[in-house]
Every structure is written in C-alpha cells, then in structure tokens.
Design a protein around this nucleic acid. Structure first.
Lengths: 218, 218
DNA sequence: AAAAGCGTTAAGAATTCGTAAAGATTCCTT
DNA sequence: AAGGAATCTTTACGAATTCTTAACGCTTTT
C-alpha cells in the first residue's frame, strides 16, 4: 500500500484530504507544521508528499529542498506563476492550486506515483548491487559508504549500464543535491567513487569516454 | 540536446512554442495533424511530446495511447476536469490548459524530463553500426575507437547515408565539439576516420565529392 | 600546363583526464 | 550558539589524448 504524507496546518483541508486518500486506498501520515514535517520525514518515508506552503515554523519553500527522493506535490493557495516555477525547478513534481478539484488531485498523485514505481529498487552490474530503497551499495558483498553525490553518479551509470553517460547528463541527474557542481568537480567525484570501488573490488569499473563522459566497463 | 515534438495544428501557437523551446536550448520537431504525428513518431523519437487535443485526422486522445516510452504533456484549451483526469490516467504526464504561461510550461517540461533516461538509437550502414546512446561504433563486429570529432563526422554521414554532405554542413555539425575546426583540419579528421574504418573492414567507406564534401559509398 | 582540391604524415599546441591537497560549505552534535 | 565532522568545490599539475597547423605529393578541373 502506498503511503502519502499530508503536510498542512489547515485541519479542515487536511481532514478532507485524508478522507479522500484513505477512501482511494492510500495510507496517510500527517504533519501540521514545518518543523513537525521534518521530524516526521526523518522517521517515516512515505511514497509521496503533499506539501502546503504557508506553514507555521518552517515554510514549505524551506522544507522542499530537504526532501530527497520522494516526489512532492505542492498544494497551495499561492497563484503567483514565478513562485510556482521556482518550486517546480526546486524539486517539486507538480503544483496544484487551492481550491483544487479532488479528482484532478488524485489523478496527479497517480501520475507522480506511476513514475516512482517504474524505477526498480535493485540495480545490478557485475558484482555491484545498488538498492535505491535504502541507498545501500555493495561490491562483492562488501558494503560501500558513498556520499550522496557518488551514489547519484553510480546510480545514473548503472541505470544506463554499458552505455556512455555524458557529463551534462550526469550533472543534470545530480543537480538536485549539488546545484553548483561543475564538470571540474564532477571528475573529482568520479575519481573518489572510482577509488572506493577499486578498494573494495580490486577492479576499475568506471571508464572515461574521451570528450563525452563516463561508462561502466566489465 | 533534448528534442521535443510539438503536435499542434495551430500554426501561431506552434511557432510561438518552437521559438520559446529553441531559445531554451531544446531541439524541436513538429507535426500538424494526428496522422502526421504518428508518422513523425515512427521515424523520430523525441524526449518529450507536447500534444494538442483538437487535431485534424486523429485526435490527441486517439494518439496518446499509441505513444510508448515518451512522456507526453497535453496542451489543450479543454478545461473539463473529467476529461483532464481521463488523460492523466491514460498516460499523460501533465496537462496544461491554453492559454498557458510560458514560464510554467517550461518548468513543467523540465520536471517531466528530469526522470528520463537516455534512449538507444542505432544507425546502420552496410557493416557499420553506430549507437548514438553509447557513442560506440562497430564495423563487421569489430569495435572502433573513435575520437569525438570522428564520431560526429561519421554520425553526420550516416544520418544522410547516400547523400553527399557538404563540408560546411559537417563543420556546423561538429562545431559544438571543436569550434576552431576548419576545412583544412576537417580533411585530416576524415583521413583518420577513413583509416580506422579501413583497418577494421578492409574497405574504404568515405568518398570525396569534388568541390562539395563527402559521402558514404558501398 | 597551371590552379585548385584532396590525402596523408608528422609535430607542436590545445584539451581532457586523473589525482592530490587545500579551502569552503553543509550538517550534525554538544 | 559553537565546534567538529563530513562533504563538496576549487586549485594545481603531470599524463594521456586529441586537435590543428604545416608540408608535400597526388588527382582533378580549367
């Protein structure tokens, strides 16, 4: 069963949302302030977050960048387009303005969840295993301790297995975590990742494709 | 570079969209009717489709289920919620109503493209195979190690197979990688590429067209 | 025959890559 | 609020690869 987090200080809207979602078959967890939301998300990992913007404590805008790897639909009364655009570029997958149509919100939730279920939870390449559910990476049964960025790079490479991944593609893919990452710092991350893989397996898994980017090699 | 297909019979909106998208750095391909759209998508595989609903020939609703593995954003003047919901459940990734705000549409396009991976496209010519996702080239099942520029030249020739490609065309095509490339250095790249192809296959694949440029030959 | 275009070789110039180390930033704990 | 740890970015430099320039012989056109 999919679980959805409702982060909204308005009790009435929250109750109404919960009722609708439960009726639709979702599990629901709730938070009523920004700080409570962060606390909730540090304990639970729902499949999707419905985020109101005007919250006591931390605002929705402040919370959004802290939510990693969970799709966030912003549900707000603010209709300013520039603001909306900022949030979409800032990581939100959708933006629904209040008052919203319930059917449409359900449809947009279904779309957002559709994209997550397509992603496989376990990726394999040679002796490398990457678990997207818990960020765990093992090489030859040895646990690897990777940073966020290294994890994102490896995941992107593994999703494209033997295909070359261009540097700009990699930068796009990890840009949510490290917005200032340049081609220059990318190669350092690759270098560090390479070293960790090599220390654990004895093999050099990452190959440079000159002028293009990187690729996993056998 | 990401390519976006605009499927809309309204010339003005289409032109406006194309201008905006090109300015944003996207490639654009277009179709003006439902039947034309299917034809276009059978040849080309863009990274995203902007789909209008009221089209001559096949309607957008009829086309949507035929589009596989490409995210579709419906752009329509229809504001009926039930209709919108149907399309979202029917595979659309988003639904934007006309008249739309350009910035918001661009943001929603960016969101839809955020999760896409590279798609493989294979070009064939005689015994040569070029994988555009991989940057890998094989001749008679022998892997070729090409430089960026050589790859770009071969790709340009293979995309135009039997046609002659002018030198200026080639220079334009590879100018992103090597901005200083002149006709003089182009012929060295062609020479090197020719040699690599010949060493692997025993055949000379590239033919000069006097005063014009180059062409693949059987 | 002269002029212009093509093909190849070789060498110096310019990029790109890999890594180390230091500075900057963020995150977490106290 | 302060300090420390982890992470990310910048800077730097040697090594590897690729690109451009220059030169010369050959081929085609005029």
């Amino acid at each position: 069963m999919k679980t959805i987090a409702i982060i909204d200080d308005d009790i009435h809207i929250g109750n109404m949302l919960e009722e609708v979602l439960v009726k639709e078959g979702y599990g629901v967890i709730r938070a009523y302030s920004g700080t409570e939301a962060l606390m909730l998300l540090s304990n639970k990992t729902p499949d999707l977050v419905l985020l109101d913007l005007m919250l006591p404590g931390l605002s929705g805008e402040q919370i959004l960048p802290k939510i990693k790897n969970i799709p966030v639909i912003v549900v707000s009364a603010k209709i300013d387009v520039d603001h909306k655009v900022d949030l979409l570029y800032g990581g939100a997958v959708d933006y629904v303005t209040k008052p919203f149509n319930t059917k449409e919100l359900l449809a947009r939730i279904a779309v957002a969840l559709r994209n997550t279920t397509v992603q496989t939870t376990l990726l394999h390449y040679d002796a490398i295993t990457l678990n997207t559910a818990n960020y765990a990476v093992t090489v030859s049964d040895i646990d690897l301790k990777l940073t966020r960025t290294e994890y994102a790079i490896l995941k992107c490479l593994m999703m494209n297995s033997t295909q070359a991944v261009s540097k700009s593609q990699l930068l796009d893919h990890i840009s949510l975590d490290t917005p200032d990452c340049t081609e220059n710092s990318l190669k350092i991350h690759v270098s560090n990742l390479r070293k960790k893989l090599r220390d654990a397996s004895g093999k050099d898994y990452i190959e440079a494709v000159w002028g293009i980017g990187f690729r996993l090699k056998k």
